[in-house]
Design a protein around this nucleic acid. Sequence first.
DNA 1: TGCCTCTGCCGAAACGTTTCGAAACCCATA
DNA 2: TATGGGTTTCGAAACGTTTCGGCAGAGGCA
Lengths: 349, 349
Amino acid sequence: MERRGEQRTTMTTIKDVAKRAGVSVSTASVALSGRGPVSEATRRRVLEAAKALDYRPNAIARSLVTRRTQTVGLVLSDITDPYFHEITKGVEHVLSAAGYALILADTDRSAAKERRSLEIFEGQRVAGIILAGSGTEDEAAPLDLKGDGIAVVTIGRHHAGLPFVAVDNVKAAGQAVAHLAETGARRIAFVAGPEGLLAAEERREGYLAALKERGLPSCPEWIVRGDFTPQGGHRAVAELLERCGRGACPEPDAILAANDQMAIGVLKGLKERGIPVPEEIAVAGIGGIPTGEFVDPPLTTVALPMKAMGEAAAGMLLEMIEGGRRKARPSVWLETHLLVRASTGAGRA
Amino acid sequence: MERRGEQRTTMTTIKDVAKRAGVSVSTASVALSGRGPVSEATRRRVLEAAKALDYRPNAIARSLVTRRTQTVGLVLSDITDPYFHEITKGVEHVLSAAGYALILADTDRSAAKERRSLEIFEGQRVAGIILAGSGTEDEAAPLDLKGDGIAVVTIGRHHAGLPFVAVDNVKAAGQAVAHLAETGARRIAFVAGPEGLLAAEERREGYLAALKERGLPSCPEWIVRGDFTPQGGHRAVAELLERCGRGACPEPDAILAANDQMAIGVLKGLKERGIPVPEEIAVAGIGGIPTGEFVDPPLTTVALPMKAMGEAAAGMLLEMIEGGRRKARPSVWLETHLLVRASTGAGRA
DNA sequence: TGCCTCTGCCGAAACGTTTCGAAACCCATA
DNA sequence: TATGGGTTTCGAAACGTTTCGGCAGAGGCA
């Protein structure tokens, strides 16, 4: 029998309101929504009754008949990653201002959990879904959604054949390399992100392209893989210093990390070894997370407009939901900008 | 007319499944939920049909008739504040494992937005609500919820007459003071949190109590108000150094900040002034946010078990929802623990 | 006065489920 | 062949809304 909970949700219904106001249910509905013609007198009576009874329309019943909900789902790969905080904030602001509820799902970077979350969203009949964070494998699942009338927008997954909000990661990495070069770096190492992750690969590509473009030397030993965490950056710097110098490659005079989190780990690693930053090795990241300002030395980075990305994605989604098919859905590229701080700055040759 | 969206959600319904399997709707329902007696043969046919049609039960319709949803709301005051990240993660994990959807609301520390979020939650008929982050004013609104059968658990708001998960902030501040004293500090300053915020006041109280208990001097000029942000901590240290030394109070030899964010701001301020930490002034925080490990010097802090708090709150809520009135609802206090790092450590007298 | 139009209100149907009581079926027993 | 009991299936009602067609009454015009 599986006798579960007693959630006796006996809140007041529109029927109660109608009775108290002495009108039919349909009239009450019309009066409350202001959708049809009602005399001023009854309108007032209904509103009064609703207030007196503390009536709260049942969104569930409403959705059932209108076949439309005021909820959207946000899927992200790890709510603990600073990258998502501002995104989430932006999304939440736009949605709640429009009267939508935000359902959050954290996939822990697991494709299975992502799939499951999407199923729950479908069950809830969300009006739309925002996919943030990186599908590595399994780009098929989100595509399935297109079938059943759920609007989808992705953030930073511009390859999936869905409308997206993104930044140019190739260019972002290029900005960082350019800046490092301008401050005198000649041997720039790179701490890459997790394999197969789109943003990570693009930044790597941008790094290599920028080296070539500027005629800077490149060396396979200067590229070491991380996992987008500070711990990963910390390990990476150990590996980097160990393998360079004794092999064919000389030690780098700058390190670019594919995200800020790793850059912060790099700083910590260098400090532990007593290597002065930026005098001996300059360090830069990509991301622009708030913490970067407070580490030592403060971190130079290429800032991504995260909050704007969240807002843009939510805005696009709302247009798609409320505008129906008529609205075009222009994906958008947002600009990144260099944030120079001390980790590449003063004291440098 | 306000002609809105075209969200034509024409997904397959249980009726389609029933037709394909050649049974009635009610039989299909029973077969799918495994709730009543069905012959093995029809059960299989129904399941097959459901799979073939990619049937996804409509949670909305289900909720309407069962008068029960599988959603819970989480209200927090600022999703950007690291304090909430682990909490949110813990909550999400427990809920999604139980098949519940998490609706997120960010109040931006505004009582009006909190009230509005709660109204939306009521409209959605969430099964339960978790209130994290600090209601300063307006503790009445959450209490109203008790009326209409929505379970409520608070995190860190143990004064509101609702079941709660909390830490002993007084004791936490005491732990920090004790540690500072043990490392030789005699003149401990305090960067307080925002006025009226419960956790902030308790930590302040704990700081004062601990000073008294250990016979350490206290001085009103050593207490300066912050706002729980790094910028606030940064400003606070400026104010502190300005007002002390020239007045009646000597300069402090340690600073305890009411949260880690402010402590990080304090570190930055001291560094800018060339004051060595911990040699001249030791610094500690309360919170245990990840960033603390990566600032310079790494921050000593009293760690709060944030993820466990989220998990505990979600667990309690589920018990209340599924267990009905029978279940007792024991509020819980979780333990804090000191995390010693360099900001109070080596190099100290 | 009679007819028409407009305004304001109402009843009923529908949305997609679950659940409950009753009908239908099967087989065994009398 | 009837009766009975147990199993399986079915039909209908219900959940709380919105929406649509229609109906009553008021007012305008001839």
